[in-house]
């Protein structure tokens, strides 16, 4: 996430967090390397996450230290979209087992609305799937936080489509927060490139995720003292 700035103005800064390590740095790299300019070749889309037959998604880890020296461990699921499509239709779908697992375990949900597909030739399907997924998520949510994230925010989407998605999401998930993100240069691209903007909205979104807190639960202490609470449980 923290990227670098070619104009030498430094690293993008989250409000209060610094990068403190990752247990899955190789995993991040397999995604990040396709987003780099290397040997004159520009960024391409990262490889599509294959749906495979897994029952649990791949997780990417990010350790971030805040101003009070506390480390926040973020686990971000890298799950194929097909899982969610099937889960939205049938909660018990065999192909949606991974999505069901996430639905049980995640602390924060980001419902991503891809503006490009909402504006594309299959926009009807895209809108329908998103509305279904919003309803499923609303049903599974319990007390957890959800944000609606408009990706590729530089792409124009008909207002009616946008309103329909937003309305469905809000109805299913009261208290929904919205973000817009984009890595595209878009119209004001040149100016942003010069200002070395870390894409629109990403830093705000990550700050919101980091501030999200679920009601506190009592957790039994680990069996053995450890300097690393992240791996404290499940150790034998």
């Amino acid at each position: 996430m923290p990227g670098s700035c070619s104009s030498g103005e430094g690293t993008y800064r989250l409000k209060a967090h610094r990068f403190a390590g990752s247990y899955t740095i190789g995993g991040w790299e397999t995604i990040a390397h396709s987003l780099r300019w290397e040997g004159g070749v520009g960024p391409t889309f990262p490889p599509h996450t294959s749906s495979g037959g897994g029952r649990r998604p791949g997780l990417l880890h990010l350790g971030l230290r805040d101003a009070d020296d506390r480390v926040a461990d973020l686990l971000i699921a890298d799950a194929p979209g097909e899982w969610f499509t099937q889960w939205a239709i049938d909660r018990e779908a065999a192909g949606g087992a991974g999505a069901r697992w996430l639905g049980d375990h995640a602390d924060v949900f980001l419902l991503v609305a891809d503006r490009e597909s909402l504006a594309g030739p299959q926009r009807g399907t895209a809108r329908g799937q998103l509305q279904l997924l919003a309803r499923r998520l609303g049903g599974e949510r319990r007390d957890r936080l959800i944000a609606l994230v408009w990706s590729k925010s530089d792409v124009e989407v008909p207002t009616e489509t946008q309103d329909a998605v937003r309305e469905a999401a809000r109805r299913a998930m009261p208290g929904l927060v919205e973000f817009s993100v984009s890595v595209h240069a878009g119209a004001e691209g040149a100016a942003r490139a010069k200002a070395c903007d870390p894409g629109l909205g990403f830093v705000e979104l990550l700050d919101w995720v980091l501030a999200a807190r679920r009601p506190v639960r009592d957790l039994r202490g680990p069996a053995r003292p450890t300097s690393d609470p992240f791996l404290a449980y499940g150790r034998r």
Binding site: A32, V183, H184
Partner: peptide, 13 residues
Amino acid sequence: LSDDLFSRPLADL
């Protein structure tokens, strides 16, 4: 340190 999508945005991927 290679440029990436953020440090050198593309008008279009």
